[in-house]
Write a protein that binds this DNA or RNA. Sequence first.
DNA 1: TTTTCATGTCGAAAAATATCGACTATTTGA
DNA 2: TCAAATAGTCGATATTTTTCGACATGAAAA
Lengths: 103, 103
Amino acid sequence: MKNDCAQSIPPEWAHFSQLFAALGDPERQRILLSFEPGETLNATQLTQASLLSRPTVSHHLRLLCEAGVLERTRRGREIHFRLMAGTLIERLQTVISYLDAHR
Amino acid sequence: MKNDCAQSIPPEWAHFSQLFAALGDPERQRILLSFEPGETLNATQLTQASLLSRPTVSHHLRLLCEAGVLERTRRGREIHFRLMAGTLIERLQTVISYLDAHR
DNA sequence: TTTTCATGTCGAAAAATATCGACTATTTGA
DNA sequence: TCAAATAGTCGATATTTTTCGACATGAAAA
């Protein structure tokens, strides 16, 4: 057993709990699955596609941005969200490499 | 925008929110990182390596098993937990394939 | 500049989750 | 059979997260 991570998480793994927590909510997953390849969606579109209120959708979008899942860009008075597929793939590959060494 | 997942998550994705929610807790991440390659650990070992109580660790172990992250096997009066690295890799590869088609 | 549109923030309430002490179940060894 | 060891359950409490209405911000259009 690795006792070095018995009580604290190594710094290189710390951001993964934030990532997985962001991905682990059904409403946020629903938001992510509504993106078509390469598409950008604004907050109004994402709110209209949801059963929840704007403040609530805004809250989920903030968590997804803070976790590095979505990118936020202002265009005029709209704010566009984009799925950061590339960096997500890299991060998940890191996890897979770790797991592959721990079969 | 994909309107078919506007209000409900497609069944083939439903188990992922449970998986990511399980991986998204720092205590559970700490538990997972304490496994050496191929190692099995019992509940007492995992509790001793934690700052939390046995009921709490037991709770986290149950969530990890229900999400398909750990495997539970009784051996005598001990219960051994094993990291299901193989199936986890497959599930993460599914997510990566989806993301790769959505760059 | 005033209005309108798009979005976010704030504070409070509701819901879900984590945590623990006391008790229970199950298996093994004396 | 009885005692010890291992692990889980139950009920209550604490903490965190989610949710929303009302209000604030900031950019474009009139």
